[in-house]
């Protein structure tokens, strides 16, 4: 029964990863593709981690010693992935905007007029 739940969690992770990669091809410009990539980085990784957590729970219920090897390490891996995925997404988006890669498809762009001010502020901070 609990093995079935683990398999369902892995399949959910697979489903959201497939959707994210499809979105990488379907969306029109770089900034919209960021959101498709976020689908892989959030639910894809989180569901795989929950599957391992549940596996650790079954090991604990069976009375095996190895369960904290799985549980603690996978919790640390989830924390690391959450922090690094967030920071790297922000770093890529910001450097892309600063290098002149502005959104091709957009309704409004509030950063367009403020961007020289931000650049000057960062130059002054250096």
């Amino acid at each position: 029964m609990i093995d079935t739940v683990i398999v369902i969690l892995v399949l959910l992770s697979l489903f959201f990863s497939i959707l994210g990669v499809i979105g990488l091809f379907r969306f029109p410009d770089f900034y919209t593709r960021i959101h498709a990539a976020g689908l892989v980085g959030s639910f894809g990784v989180l569901f795989a981690g929950f599957a391992v957590l549940l596996y650790a729970f079954t090991l604990w219920a069976a009375g095996e010693e190895a369960w904290f090897n799985y549980g603690a390490h996978v919790l640390l891996a989830l924390v690391v992935v959450v922090v690094t995925a967030t920071t790297s997404t922000h770093a890529i988006a910001r450097s892309a905007y600063r290098s002149g890669n502005t959104p091709k498809v957009h309704v409004i762009d509030a950063l367009e007029e403020d961007e020289p001010k931000m650049m000057a502020q960062e130059e002054a901070r250096r």
Binding site: H35, G38, G41, S42, V82, T89, H90, E115
Partner: peptide, 14 residues
């Protein structure tokens, strides 16, 4: 940024 659908592009530090 972690939520899909919204992403922080830039932030004014002051």
């Amino acid at each position: 940024t972690f939520q899909p659908g919204t992403a922080t592009v830039d932030i004014n530090e002051k």
